[in-house]
Amino acid sequence: MRWWLPLKASTFTGPIDGLFLAILIITGIAFVLVEVGLLWFVVKYRQRPGRKAFYTHGSTRAEVIWTVIPAVTMVALGLISNHYWVEIKGRNSIPPNAYPIGIHAKQFEWQVTYPGPDGKLGTSDDFTVRNQLHVPVGRPIVVALSSEDVIHSFYVPQFRVRQDAVPGMDIKAWFQATVPGTYELGCSQLCGLGHYRMRAQVFVQTQEDYDAWMKQAAQEASS
């Protein structure tokens, strides 16, 4: 069991985990300030006989301070987050050389279409495998997501990547795996009674292993 974000297995983990940590530090400071302050006041200013509270309606200076500091912090956080957001999800974020894979979601399975030996989707050598996503390591992958019926969501926690698959829409999402291994792809949008078992295996392989698997799978598919 982990007490932190999942294992890191894609290039997004750097910026996303870093941002998470930064926000944890900022909110952690605010959290400690407030909770310790509350506790301290509760103890220090508890009712005692003969005491009267200090009569005041506020302090403009204090209020300006505690408005401006959060405001500046939030705007700065917004700008930094946006920088990474544009890199990860922006309209032009998908690397031009990304390797295409088609994923069609349907109640309750993932149909993964591979581009075949020519490396292009939509050609006659494409083939489709259920609930198995094989990707080469160290290479940007672009997933063309579509859905047959309801909204599903493509989620690989170790890659920090999530994108809804919406019927009637063609949506592209990209990522680049960094660590070979086996992971799980889950559906993270309630899609019906089988939502909980809408799951696929993800295999991150070296380019050679991937090519070998691809050759064999293409053959099996065509026979």
Partner: peptide
């Protein structure tokens, strides 16, 4: 605030 930051919300 974590969820408002779009890249973190993706996770």
């Amino acid at each position: 605030i974590f969820m408002a930051a779009t890249p973190v919300d993706m996770q």
